[in-house]
Design a protein around this nucleic acid. Structure first.
Lengths: 347, 347
DNA sequence: GTCTCGGGTGGGAGCGCTTCCACTAGACGG
DNA sequence: CCGTCTAGTGGAAGCGCTCCCACCCGAGAC
C-alpha cells in the first residue's frame, strides 16, 4: 500500500502544494523549494522541518509547474521507428529497452515510448519531439528507410542512437557494436577449427546488423581463400534459421560450419542439423550471435558472439545525458563496442 | 524535413510563445489561445490571422504551461508489471501495445512506458503514477503476484487493465477475452471431429490466460466423458511447445488431438508431429490460440482461436478516456470479448 | 428610438514552481 | 572593534498558458 497520506482536509480539494508544505514547516516557499531540491544552503533544522511536512502532507511536486520554470521535463523518448513484431521479438531490442529504462531510472528520468511508422505517424512523431515534451531521445535504429537522424539533427534535440543510423551518422551520437568484427571473429573461429565449407545464415538485408555481420563473414572467408557463396538470409527468428539451414544443406550437403547472425537462427539451424543426423560440432560447427537468453538452452550449447548490450544501453543514456546537461544540441560522438566470442559447445 | 521555421530573431532566444503569436496576429493572448484550442467564439478573421502567425513562427504550445492550468497532461502510462522477454515476445502483448498506441494517437495522447519489476522499482512506479505526471494508466496484467490493481484503486487514478487483474477485479475497469470459452471452443471442435485422445499444451500456471484456457479444455473434456490427464505446460514459445509436445507423445503415442494455448506452441507441436511421421490433421488434429501472424505461416496452416486484440485495445483506451473525462476516478467496468474459432487446415 | 441579447474580444488573475536578489546575522581576520 | 565574508533566509518576479469576467457593439425586438 502506498504510504502517501492523502491530504486530510488541509488543502482545498487538490493535492498539497509547496506553499502548504512551507507553511506547515514554518519556512518560506523558497526555503522549502531548496530543501526539496537537494537541500543546498538550507539549515539542518529547516531541512528537517520541510522533510517532515512533506511526509505528513504526502506532498509531491507538480511536474508541470516545475518543468515550466526549469525548462526540463525529466523524461526522454525512446523512439522505435517501425514497431513490427520483428523489433519486439528481437532479444537485442528488448534488452536494450530494459537497459535504457534501468539507466534512466537511476537518474529519475521517465521513458516515453514513441512508436511510429513512416508517413503520417512520423509527422506526428516529429511534431511531438519538437514540442518540449521531452529532454531528448534515444532512437533504436533499425531500418534503412528511416531518415529520423536527419530530422533530429535538424531539430537540434539531444539524441543518441542505438545502432548506427542510416543517414546523418556524422551528425548525431550513437553507440553500436562492431558487427563486422563480430562476424569475422565467429568465422575465424571456424576457420581455425579446420572448417572449410562454411555457410552463413545472414540477417535481413535492410538492417545494419545483418549486413555488417555478413560482411565480416565474407571478408574472413576470402582472406582464408574459401568460397563465400554459401549465404542464405533469415529474419532473425528460429523458424527463419531453420528454413535457411535447410536450403544450405540442400545446396551444400558437405558443409562443415555455419555462422548465424542471431542465436535464434542458430538454434533453428541446430535443430535442422540434428534432424538430418549430423552431429554438432563434430560434423558441423555452429556459431550464433547475441548471447542473450538463448545459447544456454540449446543442445549443444551455442558458441556465440556476445554484444555488451547492458553497457551499450548505459553508454547511450550517458551520451544523451551529456548533451542534455550541456544544452548544446546534438553532437556527433560515436562509441563502438567490441563484440566478444563466447565459447561453448557448438564450435 | 520539418517545415517548422525556427523563429527568426523575433523571439529572444527560446521558442515562440503564445504572446508573440498574438502580437503578430494582432489579437490578444486570450483570443490567440481560443483560436488555437478549437477556435470557438473566434471570428473567422482572427482565426485566420492566428493560424497564419502560428505557421510563420513555427509555434507549438508549451505543454508544461498548458497542463499546469488545465491539470491534464495528455499522456497516459502503459504499465508493464514484469518486463521479462516473455511479455515482449508475446504477440498478444505486442499487438495490444500497438493497438493502444494507435488509439491514443487519434486523440493526440502520448504513451509513457512504465516497466517495473516488483520491489523497489514498484515503489518508484507508484510514486510516479501518483504525481500528476499522467492522466491515467493502462495496465497489461499478466502475473498472479502483481497487486497493482489494489494500488491503483487506492490511488484513485483512472486506469484500465488489459486482461483480468488478479486482485481488485471488482474495483477497476478491465477488458479481457473469454479464455475459458476459447479453450472450450477449440476443444469442442476436436471432439466433434471425432478425436478421443485429446491433449493440451497449456500456458504458464501463473498467467490468467494460461489457466483459463486450460480450464475450458478440461471442462469440455469432462463433459464429453474424456480423460483430462494429458496436460503439459509450455511458456507460450515455440520451443516450449515443442518440448511439451514431445512429452505428450511419449506419454500417449495414440493421441489424436492437441489444443495449444498459443499459436507459437502449436507451431512447435506441428514440427514435432511432423518429425514423428504423424500427419496433421489426419493422425492428430491441432488447434492453436491467438491468430496473429503465426497461423498462416505454418504447414499446415493452423486452425486457431482468434482474440479481437484490436478491438480490445480500443475498448481499453475508451474505458480509460471515459474515466479521465468524467473525473470520477476508477470505475469497475468490465468488457469481455468473445473469442472466435478460425478454421484453417490443422483441424 | 431605446432595450435587450449574444458573439467576439482583451484584461488580468492565477496554475505551482524555481530562482534572483536583497537582507540579516553571526564568524573571523586585521 | 570594525569591516568583510558567508551561510541562511524570504520577498517577489516570472515561466507560458487558460479562462473568468467585464466590456463593446451591431442586430433584432418592441
Amino acid at each position: 500500500m502506498p504510504r502517501v497520506n492523502r491530504p486530510p482536509s488541509d488543502s482545498p480539494g487538490g493535492a498539497p502544494t509547496l506553499d502548504e508544505v512551507a507553511r506547515r514547516a514554518g519556512v518560506s516557499r523558497a526555503t522549502a523549494s531548496r530543501a526539496i531540491n537537494g537541500g543546498n544552503r538550507v539549515s539542518p533544522a529547516a531541512l528537517a522541518a520541510v522533510e517532515a511536512a512533506v511526509l505528513e502532507l504526502g506532498y509531491t511536486p507538480n511536474p508541470a509547474a516545475r518543468s515550466l520554470v526549469t525548462r526540463r521535463t525529466d523524461s526522454v523518448a525512446l523512439v522505435v521507428p517501425e514497431p513490427d513484431e520483428r523489433v519486439f521479438s528481437d532479444p537485442f531490442f528488448v534488452h536494450t529497452l530494459r537497459g535504457v529504462n534501468r539507466m534512466l531510472a537511476t537518474r529519475d528520468l521517465q521513458l516515453v515510448l514513441l512508436l511510429a511508422k513512416p508517413g503520417e505517424e512520423e509527422r506526428r512523431l516529429l511534431r511531438y519531439l519538437g514540442s518540449r515534451h521531452i529532454d531528448g531521445a534515444i532512437v533504436v535504429s533499425h531500418h534503412r528507410s528511416d531518415r529520423l537522424a536527419d530530422h533530429l539533427a535538424a531539430l537540434g534535440l539531444p539524441c543518441a542512437f542505438v545502432g548506427r543510423p542510416w543517414t546523418s551518422a556524422d551528425k548525431v551520437a550513437y553507440v553500436d557494436t562492431d558487427n563486422v568484427a563480430g562476424g569475422r571473429a565467429a568465422t575465424e573461429l571456424l576457420v581455425e577449427r579446420g572448417c572449410r565449407r562454411i555457410a552463413t545464415i545472414a540477417g535481413p538485408g535492410d538492417m545494419a546488423a545483418g549486413i555488417d555481420r555478413l560482411d565480416g563473414w565474407r571478408t574472413t572467408m576470402r582472406a582464408a581463400g574459401l568460397s563465400d557463396d554459401l549465404v542464405e538470409h533469415g529474419d532473425f527468428t528460429e523458424s527463419g534459421g531453420e528454413a535457411a539451414a535447410r536450403l544450405l544443406l540442400e545446396r551444400a550437403p558437405d558443409l562443415d560450419g555455419i555462422v548465424a547472425a542471431s542465436d535464434l537462427m542458430a538454434a533453428g539451424a541446430l535443430r535442422v542439423l540434428a534432424g538430418s543426423g549430423r552431429s554438432v560440432p563434430g560434423d558441423v560447427a555452429v556459431v550464433g550471435y547475441d548471447d542473450v537468453g538463448v545459447p544456454e538452452r540449446t543442445t549443444p550449447q551455442l558458441t556465440t558472439v556476445r554484444n555488451p548490450i547492458g553497457e551499450m544501453a548505459e553508454q547511450a543514456v550517458r551520451l544523451l545525458l551529456e548533451q542534455i546537461d550541456d544544452q548544446r544540441g546534438p553532437r556527433p560522438i560515436r562509441v563502438i563496442f567490441p563484440p566478444a566470442l563466447v565459447r561453448r559447445d557448438s564450435a
